[in-house]
Computed example of a mutant assay.
Amino acid sequence: MVPVNHDSEVTLEIATAIARLYDRIRASGLSMRESTDFEYFEDTVRATEDRYLMEDFSSRFFDLHGSSAFWIGAWDRAGEPVSVQAAKLENLKDRSLGEFWQQQQRRMFVDPSNQAQLGEDHAHDAFFMRGRIVYHGNLWLRRDARGKGLAEALTQLGFLVSLLKWSPDYLYGLMAARNAEKGFGIRVGYRRFVPRGTHWIAPPEHVRPDDWLVYATRQDLIGLARTIVSADPEDPE
């Protein structure tokens, strides 16, 4: 793993923000685990009500290792899964994120299906994003836990663990347009929004063609950590 380049003050701020989020989530009665065991991740996803495993985090397509991928799960007191999320790092020195998509999206969706057709008019910003880039995805929260602020806290936890581990240049996701328009992205910590993600001429059946590229820079994420640290711990809003 490439050493992160935080100075000590920033590292402490990020760690403090993670601790704040961790305490807030545990106060809701959930236990959590961070893991790099993606066989366990797939088993946990299969135990959820949606059972949706994204191709990006499937052993069918990728060898996922602890140096460049992790996931976080949350369980209730009965040991039933309440939330999952995952993140992985790509070191894109020789190509942009948009160029990377041309290879990886085709690998995951087009090659296995004769019906899917990938275009080239991807999110404009993606063709300028290079360096250490984290993809955050497979975010799921059980229906009875929604609307309580847990989605925001859990997602921010994943963002800041990624920041602490890897100090990426960018962290991004692909978000359904309706969620982006309702402000979920800004609440969790994304700070930049492009009303197109991957360009599909004929999308795979289970992939939304209207997803937005949503992302944050390293400094955006540090700003998120500082906001959490400076907030009143008695007032999660």
Results as ranks from 00 to 15, higher is better:
11 T>G: 00
12 L>K: 14
13 E>R: 13
16 T>M: 05
19 A>E: 15
26 R>F: 03
27 A>S: 15
29 G>S: 12
32 M>R: 11
33 R>N: 09
35 S>T: 14
42 E>Q: 14
43 D>G: 08
43 D>V: 09
43 D>L: 10
47 A>I: 01
49 E>V: 10
56 D>M: 02
60 R>A: 12
62 F>G: 05
64 L>A: 10
65 H>R: 15
67 S>I: 10
71 W>I: 02
73 G>M: 02
75 W>H: 11
81 P>I: 13
81 P>F: 13
89 L>K: 00
92 L>H: 04
93 K>R: 13
94 D>F: 08
94 D>N: 12
96 S>F: 04
97 L>V: 12
101 W>R: 03
103 Q>G: 08
103 Q>A: 12
107 R>V: 02
107 R>G: 02
108 M>N: 04
112 P>S: 11
113 S>Y: 07
113 S>T: 12
114 N>L: 11
115 Q>N: 08
115 Q>D: 14
117 Q>K: 14
122 H>T: 07
128 F>M: 10
129 M>D: 03
133 I>E: 00
135 Y>K: 08
137 G>S: 05
140 W>I: 02
146 R>G: 10
150 L>W: 00
153 A>S: 14
157 L>E: 07
158 G>E: 01
159 F>P: 00
162 S>E: 07
166 W>V: 03
170 Y>G: 01
176 A>P: 04
176 A>I: 08
179 N>D: 04
180 A>W: 00
180 A>Q: 10
184 F>P: 01
185 G>H: 04
194 V>E: 12
199 H>P: 00
203 P>L: 10
204 P>D: 08
207 V>C: 06
207 V>T: 12
211 D>A: 12
212 W>M: 05
213 L>A: 13
215 Y>E: 03
218 R>Y: 06
220 D>P: 03
225 A>Q: 06
230 S>G: 09
234 E>H: 12
237 E>I: 12
237 E>V: 09
